[in-house]
Structure formats: C-alpha cells, structure tokens
Amino acid sequence: MSHLAQTGTAGAPEDRFLAHHFPDMTAQSQTSKLGIWLFLGSEVLFFSGLFVAYGVYRANHYALFHYAHHFLDWRMGALNTVVLVGSSLSAAWSVRCAQLGDRRGLRITLLLTLLLAGMFLVVKYFEYSHKLHNGIAWGAACHPSEEILSTLPASVRALPVPKDLGTFFSIYYLMTGLHGIHVLVGMGLYVWLIRRATRGDFGPGYFVPVDSVALYWHLVDMIWIFLFPLLYLI
C-alpha cells in the first residue's frame, strides 16, 4: 500500500484511496474502468475458443449434439439462468447503493449477490454429480448408465448410443467448468467487497471496486446467457 498517498491533501475522505500517480479521483476511476473493460474484452476472446470448439463439433456431429442435449435437464439450466439474472440485478443494485452512499443497502445487495452465486454453484454441483454418478464423463470415459438412459424421451431412447457421445460432454464440462471457475472467482471478489464495505470504504466518492467487480459479474452472466441455450436447449 506504500504507493497510496499517505499525506494526501486535506479533502474528501475517499482521497486516501488515491494512488500517487493520478491527479484526482476522477482520473483514477476512469482509468480503472477502462482497464476493467479491456480485461473483459480479453475474457470474451478467452471464452471464444470454447465456442469455436462447440461450433466445429456441432457442425460435424449435428445428430450427436441433438441426441446428447437430452441428457441435460433444461429445468436446472433455466433455474440457474434465473438465479444468475437475479444475482446480476443485485450486483447492479449494489453499485447504485455505493453511488448513493447507502451503506446498509450496499452490504445487503453484496451479500445477496454472493448467496445467489453460491446457489448457482450448488445447482451446478447437483447436475455434475448426477451425471458423473451415471457414467456421463468426458471423452472416452463417457458410458451412460442404463438408469439415465431410461429417463430419456422414448423417441431418443430408441436410438443407439453414439460412439463419440463423450465429445459433447467434453465440451459441456469445459464450457460450464470454465464458467464455474469464473463464478468461484467472482464469489471470492464479493467476499472481499463485503469485508471492505463493512469497513466503510465505499461511498459516492469511491466505488470503483464495487463497479468493477459488478462489471465482471455481468460478463459471467452474459456468458451463461449463451451457454444455456447452446447446451441445454438446442
């Protein structure tokens, strides 16, 4: 923390968060915002590789993908969509609270975001464990059990199990797994924000961390908006 201006000019209390190389808080917060957006742009391209893999294997194995998506329960996916949209709403609200100096509201919305993020992962955990228990793993290790085959719609059950079924689930685990790691990181960031909010760091003059983490969180939501229909619905 040595680079924070310790002897900062007397002024707004949030000036203690002004780093020595910026002239004022406006310059600092605008620079941070640009930085976080550049990082998010990078994140989009990071995920794009998995969308390429999805696109290529879907184009080459259309029937396989159509068959395999019946193993995913769209109700679980839809539930998680609702959970994530709710957490995004709460995250956006937390920025509003910080901007208006509503400290109680800030703590509540941050906590709510964290809880909804946790709920997302709980649902995801049930989905993963159900599949892995029934032999639906990735790649060559994918051997669906009779039990899970019997839950498929009758028209699908009549079809033979495709040889490369695991390819779909490799992509499923990769996409949802990378997304899940991002959710975990986001939860860590929200824990950090809650600690700082409890300490009273944030207010109308200094809310860059709340805003930046919220932006990251909305990007995680945005990725899920694409994953849900691509994996569960079509």
Binding site: L38, L40, G41, V44, L45, F47, S48, G49, F51
Partner: peptide
C-alpha cells in the same frame, strides 16, 4: 472494446 471483442470472437 466490447463490440470489437465480440466481432473478433465471431470472426474466429
């Protein structure tokens, strides 16, 4: 920035 990222991803 966001549109550029989306376009590059779409290109890819």
């Amino acid at each position: 920035i966001l549109i550029a990222a989306a376009l590059f991803a779409a290109l890819f």
